[in-house]
Each structure stands twice: as C-alpha cells, then as structure tokens.
Design a protein around this nucleic acid. Structure first.
Length: 596
RNA sequence: GGCCCCGUAGUUCAAUGGAUAGAAUAGAAGUUUCCUAAACUUUAGAUGCAAGUUCGAUUCUUGCCGGGGCUACCA
C-alpha cells in the first residue's frame, strides 16, 4: 500500500515548512492494537533535527496531515507517537485494486539477477534423516521466496558420491552382501546401502576390539584395522579407475539415487541441476594458480599453498596440500567457478549448510572476494541449527537418527488418525482420503520446522509436531478449507460473478479493516523473507492472518449477512484471504486442502 | 585457550532501537438451533546476571554465567 510513501513525503514537507528542518527519514509503523489509529509516525527521531516537545510536534504534523490528505480522517498523539487514523475509503480502494493485480504479492521474474540455491547435498552411503529434512525444506522454501521476489533461481545439490564413506558400504556389501539388491530384498536402495554402512561399522569395531585385546592401543588399532585398510585401498583403486570397483560404485550409487528420488518426491522438493562430487573433486587447482599469481595465496617451503586471513581476524587456511592434492576448500572454490561457467547469468549463490560450517563458508566467501569475482559479494551461507530430539542429539551410531521416510509416513498416519476421530470426510474415496492425510501430515511437519528462525536449534518433539492446534500447519490448512467451504456454498447459489466492486462509502467493521491491512502487508513480508532468507517470517505472517480471519469469521456472519453488498464484500474478503494463505504457504512448500 | 551461534511465560516459538514484551500449548472459566467447534472469548504466567551507549534496550557494546558448535595437509 503506497500510502506509506505518501505519508513519508508529506511529513518531510510539513516539517520543512513548519520547522525548517530537513528530515533524512521518517519512521512509520503499524499502530499497536491498544491505541486508536492505523499508522503511527514516531516523532522521537525528529528531535535531533527539531528542538521542541514531541507531543507538540506530533500535534502540528497531525493537524497538517489531516488537513492536507483526504485519506487521513483523524489523529491522536501519545507521548512521541503520532497515531493516524486512515479512512475506510482508502482501504476499500486498496482492496478493490487487488482485482487488477495478477499474482498479488509475487513479483514477476523481471530482474536480471539469477541466484543459485544449493541444498540437501547428501552423502551416498546412507538414507536421508531429519537433519536433511530441515535442510531441504529451508533450501526449497528460500528458492521459492527468491523467485517470488522476482529473481531467477537455479536449485541445485552437490551429491557427495565419492570418498571413503561409500567405499565402506561397498566393501561391506562385497564381503557380507551375498549379492543382495533392492529388487531381491524389496528394500529401498538408499536403505540397503545404509545397512551395509552400518554393517561395516559394526565389523570394524569388532576388529578393533579384538586388536585391543591382543595388546594394541585403541588409536593404533583404529588406524590399522584391516577392514579400514581395505576400504582405503578401494578408494585408491576407484581413483585409478579400476573397472571392477567403478562398476560396483556405479551400481550401488544408482540404488541410492532411486531411494533419494523417492524421498525428494515425497518431500516435494526438486532440483534444476545436479552436481556430483566425483566430477568436481579435482576442480579448483587452476584457481590456486590464479590466486598465486594474483598474490592472494602464498606457497610454503614444503609446497603447500595457503591464504593468510589474519588481517580479517581469521587464521591462515590451507588451500592445497604439499603433495599437490585438493582439500575441501579447493573443491568448493572450483565448484563455485564451475557453476558460474555453467550458468553465466548467476549473480549470487545461497548455500544451505548446517552452522557447524560457518567458519568454512566465511573463509570460502572471503577468498572468492579477494580473487575479485563480481558475484562474490552476493554469496550467502544459509546456516541453520541442528535438530535435537527430546532424548538429545541425533547420533547415527547410537541409532537415534530419525529417518526421513519413516518420519513422513508417521506424520501421514497421525493425520489419518486425528481425521478419523473427527470424521468429517464422508463421501471421499479412500484414495482421496490418503492424499489428504499426506497433505495434512506434511503440512504439519513442514510448518513445524519452517516457523522457527533458521539459525536456531530446533527441538523436534515428535508428539508436539503432530499437534494440529495452535500455531501449526494443519490449523492454517483448516482455516483455508473453511473458506473454500464458504466459496462453494456461494457458488452453488450461482452468485460467482455477482461479486462487484465494493462501494467506497461502505463503513468497515474493525475486523474487516484489520484483515485488509494484513493483506496489504503480504508483498512486504515476502520481500523481507527473501532478503533475510527466512521462511519463518512468512510462516508467522500467515499465522497472524489466520488468527485475524478466525476472529472475523467467528464474530461476523458472512453468508447470513442481510445487506447484500456487505455479504458480497465479506465473501470476497474471505476469498482474498484464502488466496494469500495459499500463496504464502506454497512458498513454504505446503499444499492446501479443499476440505478437511 | 581462541573464534562463532544461542539464553524470553512450566514448555515450544515471536518482537526493522520504540508505546503496557506478543502468540501457541499446558492450567482455570465460558461460547455451538447459524456458513466446518481441528474454532472463538475471558483469565493467570517471562527478557540468565551486571554495567555502558540514549529520549527509549529483548534488540547495540563490554564483562560474567549457562547451552551448542568450529578450532585437521578429513569431506
């Protein structure tokens, strides 16, 4: 709603005329509910430029605004807060104007900026777990938010398909597998491979214990265990391109990918481009040369290459080993460059990675900046906190990991259970019901995770996450379903086209006005969420709108309203709320049910 | 040790430096001849501690106390 800009300009003008002071900014905020008014001008910051009593200044400005602007009906001043009352006509006009805005709140992709968003990035030796779920939901949602703010977005993941971890699974499969496949066992591919990773770990531990019993120190035993040696040997063979090892590697990874694809599909996330570590792990060495020649890096006598970041308050960091092989940083540098090569329109990147890698990304971004790449200023680490369980940390070794597939099933089952207790779905086929349970169960999970500020740790309480009351996904979905129900009744009457423009002189009920105000904040919220890479802002906005609607719904009749204009207005208002709810939730990757 | 993140009602989460710190849950009390009660209304309850910056601090600065993370020529 552009009234804010008008107010800012006008306040500046008034202050210039009355006090001969040039204000750099004017601070506006929505008026708190306990005070009369709609928009508040904060007078305090002006005291630096104007000498005087804040109440008097506020009154002077208020009087001028009321006299000069039709949309301002009145004002009051409390301490240094000038509360302006905006007339109903303004809100009605704004509401009517929404008809002509297509995809209200969502910017069309007009910007030349393209952002690559990386998320998920799993290892190929075990199935996805709750931590990946948070990562995926965050990454996907941020990608959608960036799109909604008008940017072009490429979604990507880098698949860590190479290294000692997958060799461990491969070795265990060869030793103990007896030729098992997903087909022969009916086990999902990623689970099967994960089982062998666990089997390796178990056998390895037994070996180590045995060696300790035979008199070796733990440290030494863990280094010298034959199984580990064999796995390392396998990695060397893989790097040398040994046909047998490579064939097995391809085979097992393909099982894992089938499993991942299923999980991603269930989760509702997707990618525009995949990168594989097996193809990128050798990248980056030419960047090292470039950095050396530019003087960004330096070489130590042993041949290893470093960057000195002590001036930035960080340490020295290695970027190439003395034997000339890559470290993690080398790869990431190379991969970043490769991406820009593949997608020349990229102006920024977002990496969705856990906060234990904060330091790594700080260094990575700093190096790219020092190397002078134009896009290096727009790199963001979407850093998120761990997901804890009430029992403590998730530890794969202790079997306290929450598997992603199991979790999704569990949520769906709980939704089913609760829905059945309420028994509102008569007339639905079993298939339709199952689809609905999924929408609700997933909605509960996604909302539960996304409503929390990304950088905070989440305490994932399985029982609470399936709660459908309060600030939860299903609560929002339920409100949407109720509005759809109103719409259906209205359409049954054949009144669909009858919704006309609302007359500007119609008086608004306070609840109606609140709803319109909130609807007006939708685009701003999306922009803020995109700028801060925080889906939580959208989640909390949507929830606020739902609460406001519920209160409106409870206190005012809609279809039963006697005044026909008012009735149509309320139906239309409800419909607009439904639109905003569905748009907002879709940015979180959450679907809305027509009924529930 | 050094560096980074987090400490808000019993619990889970909010609050661009702004007014009397909001919700939700759990607790107490109410509201269904009516469009979906998975709802609504009322009630009680919190900024870890101590200084500083200022008209004003949950927010910024410093110190302390708690929780977590990083601190590999691993990825």
């Amino acid at each position: 709603m552009d009234i804010e800009q008008i107010l800012i300009d006008r306040v500046k003008k008034v202050v210039l005329e009355q006090y001969d002071a040039d204000l750099p900014t004017v601070e506006l905020q929505p008026t708190r509910k306990d005070f009369e008014g709609d928009i508040t001008v904060v007078v305090f910051p002006m005291l630096k430029f104007i000498k005087g009593n804040p109440v008097e200044i506020g009154t002077t400005i208020g009087e001028a605004l009321r006299a000069q602007l039709d949309s301002i009906d009145g004002f009051n001043v409390v301490k240094g807060f000038l509360n302006l009352v905006v007339g109903d006509a303004y809100y009605i006009e704004f509401f009517n104007s929404l008809d002509t805005i297509e995809n209200y709140g969502l910017q069309a992709n007009t910007s030349a900026e393209a952002v690559m968003v990386e998320y998920s990035s799993p290892n190929t030796n075990k199935p996805l777990h709750l931590g990946h779920v948070r990562n995926n939901l965050l990454g996907y949602s941020v990608a959608e938010l960036l799109k909604a703010s008008g940017k072009k977005v490429y979604k990507t993941q880098i698949i860590n398909d190479r290294g000692i971890h997958i060799c461990k699974s491969m070795l265990a499969w060869k030793k103990f597998g007896g030729g098992e496949t997903p087909e022969s066992t009916g086990i999902k591919g990623d689970k099967l491979v994960g089982n062998y990773y666990v089997a390796f770990d178990k056998a390895f531990k037994e070996e180590v214990e045995k060696m300790i019993d035979e008199g070796m120190s733990r440290e030494e035993a863990e280094k010298e265990a034959p199984l580990l040696k064999q796995a390392q040997d396998m990695l060397i063979k893989w790097e040398a391109g040994d046909p047998e090892v490579v064939a097995l590697w391809k085979q097992m990874n393909s099982w894992v990918y089938e499993g991942f694809d299923e999980t991603y599909k269930n989760l509702g996330v997707d990618f525009d481009r995949l990168y594989y570590e097996s193809k990128t792990y050798l990248l980056g060495k030419d960047v090292i040369e470039e950095g050396l020649s530019k003087g960004v890096f330096f070489r130590k006598p042993d041949g290893s290459v470093w960057i000195d970041l002590t001036e930035e308050g960080l340490d020295q960091k290695i970027v190439l080993r003395s034997d000339g092989t890559s470290v993690y940083m080398t790869q990431d540098l190379g991969t970043a460059l490769q991406r820009v090569k593949d997608f020349p329109d990229i102006t920024g990147m977002v990496y969705t990675v856990g906060n234990e890698q904060d330091y790594h990304f700080k260094v990575l971004f700093l190096i790219l900046k020092k190397l002078g790449y134009s896009w290096a200023g727009q790199l963001h680490h979407l850093s998120y906190g761990m997901v804890d369980l009430p029992s403590g940390k998730m530890k794969s070794r202790e079997g306290t990991v929450v598997d992603a597939d199991d979790l999704l099933d569990e949520m769906t089952r709980t939704a089913e259970q609760i829905s059945k207790e309420l028994g509102k779905l008569d007339g639905y086929s079993e298939e339709e019901k199952q689809a609905l349970y999924r929408i609700i169960g997933l909605g509960a999970l996604k909302y539960y995770i996304l409503k929390v500020d990304p950088k905070k740790r989440i305490l994932f309480n399985p029982e609470e996450s399936v709660d459908f009351q309060g600030n939860t996904g299903p609560f929002i979905q339920y409100t949407y379903a109720r509005i759809r129900s109103i719409m259906r009744k209205f359409e049954e009457e054949g009144s669909v086209e009858a919704i006309a423009k609302t007359q500007p002189d119609m008086p608004l009920h306070a609840k109606e006005k609140e709803l319109i105000k909130l609807i007006g904040q939708f685009p701003v919220t999306i922009q803020q969420a995109a700028d801060n890479l925080s889906p939580a802002l959208v989640a909390n906005y949507v929830y606020e709108l739902v609460k406001e609607f519920n209160s409106f719904y409870q206190q005012l009749t809609i279809l039963g309203e006697k005044d026909d204009d008012k009735r149509k207005f309320r139906v239309k208002l409800s419909k607009t709320v439904a639109y905003v709810l569905a748009s907002g939730m879709s940015l979180l990757g959450i679907n809305m049910p027509e009924r529930m």
